[in-house]
Simulated scan of single mutants.
Amino acid sequence: MSTVPGTTLARPEWLTARIAEMGKSWGTSSPRIAGTLWWCMVASALVEPLARAAATGQLPPEPALDRMDCEIRPDGGVERVRIAAADAPDVARSAAVLRETLAAVIPAVAAVSGAGVPALWAIVADAMGNRALDAGDGPSGAELATSVGGKLPVPRFVTIGGRTFVRRISCCLVYEVPGCEMCTSCPKRPAAEREALLAKLAAGC
Rank of each mutant, 00 (worst) to 15 (best):
Y175N: 14
E193I: 09
N130D: 05
W14Y: 04
P107R: 01
D126I: 06
E143Q: 09
A192D: 12
T8L: 12
G162F: 01
E100D: 14
P12K: 04
C180W: 13
A85E: 11
V97L: 08
A108V: 00
L46G: 01
E62V: 08
G161N: 09
V42D: 10
P107S: 02
V109Q: 00
G23E: 01
D69Q: 11
I169D: 13
P178H: 03
G76W: 09
S30E: 02
A142N: 05
S44V: 05
A191V: 14
N130Q: 11
V97S: 06
A135C: 11
S170Q: 13
P118W: 02
C172L: 09
E62F: 05
G136V: 08
G149W: 06
R194E: 05
V81I: 09
L173R: 05
M41P: 04
G129Y: 01
L198T: 01
M22P: 03
V174K: 14
T28D: 14
R32P: 01
V117C: 00
S170R: 08
L102E: 02
P190D: 11
A104C: 15
V4Y: 10
D134F: 12
R67E: 04
V91E: 14
L173P: 03
E13G: 04
T36N: 10
M41T: 11
P74R: 15
A127E: 06
L197D: 11
P5Q: 07
V47Q: 07
W14A: 04
T36D: 09
R80Y: 11
L120K: 06
G162Y: 07
M41C: 09
E195I: 10
G76D: 09
G141C: 12
S29D: 13
L46P: 01
A20F: 01
G149Q: 04
F165Y: 12
A10V: 06
G138P: 04
D90Q: 13
A103D: 13
D126Y: 08
E71F: 08
P107M: 03
A10E: 07
R82H: 13
A45L: 11
N130K: 15
A53G: 15
G114Q: 02
A145F: 07
G114R: 00
T7M: 01
A88C: 09
P63S: 07
